[in-house]
Design a protein around this nucleic acid. Structure first.
Length: 283
DNA sequence: ACGATTATTGCGTTCTT
DNA sequence: AAGAAAACAATAATCGT
């Protein structure tokens, strides 16, 4: 089951340790001012390089009491602002972190992922950085790998291609980014199950829900012995769909080439998987 | 579209150094 | 123990039907 947004995760590794719903919203507090019901300030977020806590020096021309500032004082504040900004991003690693957080926020937003996924991806990156996994690799690759890794840890359907499409870098870099995280950090990413690919494929091809249901049934009941060890789970889903389509009357056939495009495996592989399902059925 | 054959790729194992 | 290499399995490419 894909959980969407109420997990408690280990700050260090992003491992989901608990899945109960927690209200992070503000408590009721204010008696008179109905518009201000917060009990605290902005929440901490791992998805910004400064965790959302950085102090900003404002540009008002008056002090806290509304008295106008002298020229001398204003010049001093300008200097402070500049130095403060430099101090915040002074080191390379902090610059990298700021870059990565922007990238992670961009990617997760484009994928329509929630804050929990985004924050977990951010934590993964921070951990990668503290373990010096960035050496010799690009920030972009690790950031993308972290986003993909967060998806995988939650059993989400996003593919490597989905993430990669949003980046400028080579597919192999993104893949490597993910693999490094997975290997070095021991991500609790479960293997992909074939049926997790069904919804995306079916909606892309405009297939009826009944076809999807039948395909799921085929996958669930099929003894795994027949399918080769290590077979691409997406291909298994595609093969099951081909069988489901062919045996249901009134459903338009889908050309294998089209199915191949959508699933991301060759028509060859599709046929292999389909035939395995057929041989299981007739056995 | 299918089946068969060949090429490629990725990966865990085994052999070296 | 790190790295090279031979070996294997899945998939893609290609051809003929």
């Amino acid at each position: 089951m894909v959980s969407t947004g109420h997990e408690r995760t280990c700050e260090q590794c992003g491992l989901v340790v608990e899945s109960e719903q927690i209200d992070h919203g503000p408590e009721w507090r204010s008696f008179e001012d109905r518009d201000d019901q917060r009990r605290t300030g902005a929440p901490l977020t791992p998805a910004r390089h400064d965790r959302g806590l950085s102090t900003k020096i404002g540009t008002d021309r008056s002090d806290a009491n509304g008295n106008p500032l002298s020229d001398r004082k204003r010049r001093q504040l300008r200097r402070l602002r500049r130095e403060h900004g430099r101090a915040l991003r002074s080191t390379t690693s902090e610059q990298n972190l700021a870059l990565a957080m922007m990238e992670i926020r961009r990617l997760t937003a484009a994928l329509g992922l929630g804050n929990d996924l985004r924050n977990q991806a951010a934590r993964l990156f921070r951990r990668a950085q503290s373990e010096e996994l960035l050496k010799g690799r690009s920030v972009e690759a690790i950031a993308a790998g972290a986003v993909y890794g967060a998806c995988r840890c939650h059993g989400r359907p996003e593919t490597l291609a989905d993430v990669n499409q949003l980046t400028q870098i080579d597919r192999s870099r993104v893949k490597n980014g993910y693999q490094v995280l997975n290997r070095e950090l021991g991500l609790p990413a479960p293997p992909r199950e074939p049926d997790t690919f069904l919804p995306a494929i079916c909606s892309e091809l405009g297939l009826d829900a009944s076809v999807e249901r039948r395909a799921r049934q085929l996958i669930d009941t099929a003894p795994t012995a027949r399918v080769p060890h290590g077979a691409n789970p997406a291909g298994i889903a595609g093969g099951a769909l081909l069988v489901a389509i062919s045996e249901m009357c009134g459903v338009a056939e889908i050309p294998q080439t089209e199915m191949s495009d959508v699933v991301g495996v060759s028509a060859n592989t599709l046929r292999a998987r389909r035939d395995e399902f057929r041989s299981i059925e007739s056995a």
